[in-house]
Design a protein around this nucleic acid. Structure first.
Lengths: 256, 256
DNA sequence: AACGGTATATTGGTACAACCATCGCGCGGC
DNA sequence: GCCGCGCGATGGTTGTACCAATATACCGTT
């Protein structure tokens, strides 16, 4: 029988993945200038003390990420991330090597989020099915039960948003949500945000769900805008607090 | 001397890339069900008549794209694209094997575009520098010169949008634009859209640039919304025409 | 009969070695 | 001065062997 269900086992740390991570950081931090040629595969292999195959597999991953261009007979060339990179790279840009957070990029992400979520809500209100409204109602009840358990609450929030993204019936937004949601999850995991609890009330969310049910696009978008703006302000003040307390979680914007 | 400037030479078609493409399509078309295990590396190697290393490199690329999860000792497992995939996969979803276009996904993309562009314009109006306004003015002049040359005009449009994305000073939107812009370029290359010419007038764009210069967020967003909605309607009617003429460029939404 | 641990087969990970295909640059001929 | 050939550098492919993690089957214990 064909094996099924690979569980959620963590990825085994392999040499290949380690080299990949090193190279990604090197590119993102400009060790290899945009457009310039990387060392040859053989040189990298020697440098990292691994076989050439390991380096090659790592480079293939970078190629798939759009970080390098590989051309036979010539070499491997670093790409300009901001000019050719895709959204999948954002996670790498926001989080540093030791899971620290780049402050400027964080601001930009929150600005994006504040525009993105209302758009999704608009589409969700337009295209939602009755089933999805039911799903949201159920998620709302789950939230009520989990109101005291912060980590769990975050999970519930993200699942609600996923449902909304599905209700939007738009592949693009769903994919963007997959990217952004991963970032969100990592953010809340990385930051001890115990002081975030009472930002959003159960009534507000119920109001929002009702707007979706009645397909009131404008109202749904407006409510979402208010909530995201408030969350944004809250995170900003929290960041302020972190900076004053000298936390190492945040790295100032170091530009090139 | 270290070699520089790798030119724009097209990627050499290699066995590794071919296998990658095959596997990507297989996953996206559900040949391997979401969550199920793919054939072993050795089996795939035999199946495609290549060495195991080639298969491995292809699989690394899929892994980087988020299409599969690889776990040593167990196997390679297909992921559910809509649940875990990132925006970089959209291009693969929209375009089929022979550069045909999935109609439903196209609709969704246009809906996204109509919401995305105004958001970017809003941020651009908020954060633009004087230099970037100058860049836009210059691009506008270039556009005037290229008004008759349709392919060239498309290029100019995308470059203007890139400038706007940069003016937004937001990494997220810039990365999303990189994804979406690639799709846009491919769309216009794939579709013979000679009848698209007179959609947007020079005056309208000038108006938009002025709004950016004066940092009138609402006006910029509003104008952008009008333009994108018009473009959307135009494309829709064009698709209608294609369907009636029995073009093979479009594939009806074939769902699973 | 139910449970747990060990042996074994399966499968991905790494290594070394050799050779092919393509590209770029320089040398030499025209 | 320009063109073309060829050589060296570099990525692409193959083969084999072995290592490491995982999954399964088997067997003994309880």
């Amino acid at each position: 029988m064909s094996r099924q269900a690979p569980k959620d086992s963590h990825s085994t740390p392999t040499a290949s993945r380690a080299v990949t991570a090193r190279l990604v950081r090197n590119i993102l931090e400009g060790v290899y200038g945009a457009g310039s040629r990387l060392p040859t595969e053989r040189e990298l292999a020697e440098q990292f003390n691994v076989s050439r195959h390991v380096v090659r597999e790592a480079l293939k991953r970078l190629e798939a990420l759009g970080l390098v261009r590989i051309v036979q007979g010539s070499g491997v060339y670093a790409q300009d991330v901001l000019l050719t990179g895709g959204l999948e790279l954002f996670e790498y840009l926001l989080f540093g090597e030791r899971n620290d957070v780049n402050q400027r990029i964080l601001d930009e992400f929150l600005a994006f989020w504040a525009l993105f979520v209302p758009d999704v809500l608009r589409l969700a209100a337009r295209h939602r099915t009755r089933e999805q409204v039911q799903d949201l109602r159920e998620a709302l009840r789950e939230r009520a039960a989990a109101l005291e358990d912060l980590p769990c609450l975050t999970q519930v929030h993200l699942r609600m948003l996923r449902t909304v993204a599905q209700a939007a019936h738009n592949t693009v937004y769903q994919l963007i949500f997959n990217n952004a949601g991963r970032v969100m999850a990592r953010l809340r995991a990385a930051v001890p945000l115990a002081r975030f609890s009472p930002i959003i009330t159960q009534e507000e969310l119920a109001h929002l769900v009702a707007a979706i049910e009645q397909q009131d696009e404008e109202l749904a978008a407006l409510l979402a805008q208010r909530l995201t703006e408030r969350a944004r302000a809250s995170v900003a003040s929290f960041v302020q607090f972190l900076l004053q307390s000298g936390s190492e979680l945040l790295t100032p914007a170091h530009e090139g």
